[in-house]
Amino acid sequence: MSELISPEILSEIFKFLYTKEEGKINLFNCVLVNRYWCRTTIPILWLDPFSFFDNKMSLDGLISTYMACLTNKERRSLEKQGIEVPKKVKSPSFDYISFLKNLNYDGLISSLFHLGCNDGVYKKNDSFGIMLPALLEILANRDLALQSLELKNHDRRGDWDREFMHLVDRKIRPLIKPVKKIYLDCNVLDARFLPLLSGQCQRVRHLYIVMHVEKSKKGSIICERDATYYAKLIDKQKSLEILAIEKFTKYFKNILPSFKTQIQSLRVIEFINSNFKECESLEVIASCENLERLIFRGCNNLSTKILRPLFNANFSKLKEISFESSERNEEIEIWLQKFNVIH
């Protein structure tokens, strides 16, 4: 009876469930209904596996499943690099690796980290150091057409610079080149990382950048450097549509000029928890005539002077302005009311 629903429609229903709270649990239940539902559900469950781990068993299970999906050629490649590959492994019902579309890099690293971890203590003499680049190369050779990349480096021991540099290695370029969405919330000390990422990922449609807090003079230098590199990442994109910037407290002079290269394509601009004290003007945003959503959430020091270029901008396609800030004065209120009357 369930086969009366086409696989395309069923897939869309399951994707909708996947986005809801406890969606993954609901989809696990769908797998058990029958084979038809199982074949439709599994690719959705495994499109972003490294974002859903909560204990050591699930971490180990992810890697074990991926290892079971390796081809003979891929197994031999790992063995040549000194990585032990289980000999007697039952072939899985699906090639789970082929479903990967969204790569949570921190999740991948955390999964592999347990191969060289004992009671939370990192052991550098274990296979982690060679397993990460080896697995990335396998993924790069799989023609996966990756859609999104999530980059974070929080609350874990290890050599972050080396681990992130593996991702922008020339051999891994086929994996990250097709990416359409990037979430950046990382603090990589190696100055080569962001420029290399900009050179390899130039088809991004959705970019989310989180600036790290300055905790020292050295941290301040790194933040200013990264702001310049973020600007280059924006500048390199062919057609950026959604741009979100979080926790920028300065360096707007570094990043705002890069918006000029995307004024025809930008549809959504969002500032979150940012301080505009050192920003002189948002005139460049006024040039984004195709803008549909403009959001300021939890921002400070958004003065009338900074916002004034937006008051008379020709935003003919704008559907939403969200302004959550303590600096709401009469002139800003008139601007918001004017927009609400028109729309």
Rank of each mutant, 00 (worst) to 15 (best):
F164T: 12
F164I: 06
H166E: 13
L167T: 11
V168F: 04
R170F: 14
L175R: 08
I176W: 05
P178Q: 05
V179W: 11
V179S: 10
V179H: 06
I182F: 14
Y183G: 03
N187R: 15
V188Y: 01
V188C: 08
A191L: 03
R192N: 10
R192F: 00
L196K: 13
L197D: 06
C201A: 15
R203Q: 10
H206G: 00
Y208P: 03
I209E: 04
I209T: 10
I209L: 13
I209A: 08
V210R: 13
M211A: 13
H212V: 00
V213K: 15
V213T: 09
S216T: 13
S216Q: 02
K217A: 15
S220V: 09
S220R: 15
C223H: 04
C223F: 05
E224W: 07
D226K: 01
A227Q: 03
Y229N: 15
K232I: 10
K232Q: 14
I234E: 06
I234Y: 01
L240Q: 03
E241W: 14
I242S: 07
I245G: 03
T249A: 09
K250T: 14
Y251D: 15
F252D: 01
L256H: 02
P257W: 05
T261C: 04
Q262S: 06
Q262D: 08
V268Y: 03
V268F: 02
F271G: 02
E278I: 11
L282F: 07
E283P: 00
V284W: 03
S287D: 08
S287E: 14
